[in-house]
Simulated assay, not measured.
Amino acid sequence: MSHDVLVAGETLIDWVPERAGPLEDVAGFERRPGGAPANVAVALARLEGQPLFWTRVGADPFGRYLERVLENNGLPIRFVERDPGAKTTLAFVTHDETGERAFTFYRDGTADTRLEPDRIDDETLADCEWVHAGGVTLSSGSSRAATLDLLERAAAAGCTVSFDPNLRPALWPNVGTFASVVGDALAHVDVCLATAAELEALGFSGDSAAEIARATIDHGPPHTVFVTRGSDGAVGVASDDAPWPADVVDHPGFDVAAVDTTGAGDAFVAGAIAALRDDQEPADAVAFANAVAATATTAKGAMAALPTRDAVAPLLEAERSHRRS
């Protein structure tokens, strides 16, 4: 079977609190599979693809659980590495009364920091049309060099390369280091998907999301930038260098009864990749990605709530009907 998308990055355990409040006041947590690239890979599988996924988990009960989750979600485990000398990363999530999240990571020398360069062979990259990675594996360990190596080799192999900075301040005590390392990654990136705050941390500025995206493109080399805005939708900007029509798109998102926003950004990333690979133009890609993200918020759990195309279709059809009327 052909696998024309490769996703790379961390898989970890999210411990989600039973209620809002500081970590020291929360007594109970629910175990959930997590990691932004893992969510993206599963989301692509739900959208009727079957991406390859390169990750590394510990040879411990949590790692075995995550391997089973990935396989049960239709992902081949060819590049799911088990590290005999490291534990699986744990992330404790807390929410304040406004819903804002904060993360406390147990990630010192854990498996996802120990990815190694050259583990993805040239033949695999030659068969891939698209490679996607996130910024967490750039934050520490040999995974920084491994991620940069993959992006460089993917670009050289002619793959479309996409990237999500996924800034987690707890993992980047020095924002300058974040900007420098992610800047090295962006040198190989075609499509960047980020929040305005993440792009501003990289040194790009503007009075609107579209201006910030344009500043990112003008700096180069990404030719396409999507700026996500949560419940307010997203902006997409594509330059004349993009293989799809140049455009500036501002989509307001979809009004849904949100239950859990965890993983919505990852759902958006997967929706954008799926749409662009289906040769949709930027306007349709942003709309589809917003619909995937919105649908993902209507049930609990980052992975569990990731939708199929059939689940997303009603939102898109309702939007088309509204435009016709």
Rank of each mutant, 00 (worst) to 15 (best):
L167T: 10
H223N: 02
G206D: 02
A179R: 14
L199F: 06
L167K: 00
C159Q: 03
R214D: 12
A194K: 09
R144T: 15
S142N: 10
A196L: 13
P173S: 07
G176D: 14
P169H: 13
I212R: 11
G206C: 09
V182Q: 05
V191S: 14
T228E: 06
A155G: 01
H223L: 00
F204A: 10
H188P: 07
A156M: 03
S180I: 02
D164K: 00
A201L: 09
A201N: 14
A155Y: 02
G206L: 08
A179Q: 07
D190K: 12
V225G: 03
R168G: 11
H223C: 03
G183L: 10
T147K: 13
S205C: 06
W172I: 09
H188F: 14
G176Q: 11
G176M: 09
A156P: 00
G206H: 09
S162K: 07
S139I: 02
V227P: 03
F204S: 10
P169Y: 12
V181C: 06
A194D: 05
G203L: 11
L199Y: 12
V227K: 01
W172G: 14
S139G: 12
A145G: 02
S205G: 13
L171Q: 02
V225H: 01
H219C: 05
T147F: 10
F178P: 05
P169K: 10
H188Y: 15
D218M: 03
L151K: 08
P222W: 01
A155T: 04
L171K: 01
A157N: 05
R168N: 12
S140M: 12
L186F: 09
A156F: 03
G176F: 07
A209N: 10
H219P: 00
F178V: 05
L202W: 06
E211V: 05
L171Y: 01
G158R: 09
N174A: 15
A179T: 04
V227G: 02
L150N: 02
G206E: 01
F204V: 00
D164E: 09
V225D: 06
P165F: 08
D164R: 00
A179D: 04
A145K: 14
G158C: 08
S162P: 02
A215Q: 04
A154T: 02
T177G: 05
L138Q: 02
V189E: 04
I217N: 06
T224G: 00
F163E: 03
G158I: 05
V191Q: 14
V181H: 06
C159W: 02
R144E: 14
S142D: 13
E152T: 11
V161G: 12
E200Y: 08
L138T: 08
A145S: 15
T160C: 07
V189W: 03
V191I: 15
L193M: 15
A196K: 14
G176R: 11
E200N: 14
I212Q: 05
C159L: 01
A197L: 13
T147R: 10
H223Y: 08
F204I: 05
S139Y: 12
A210K: 00
V189C: 14
A201P: 03
A197Y: 08
L150K: 07
L148W: 07
N166Y: 05
A201I: 09
G158Y: 08
S142Y: 07
L167S: 08
V181A: 06
V189Q: 04
D184I: 04
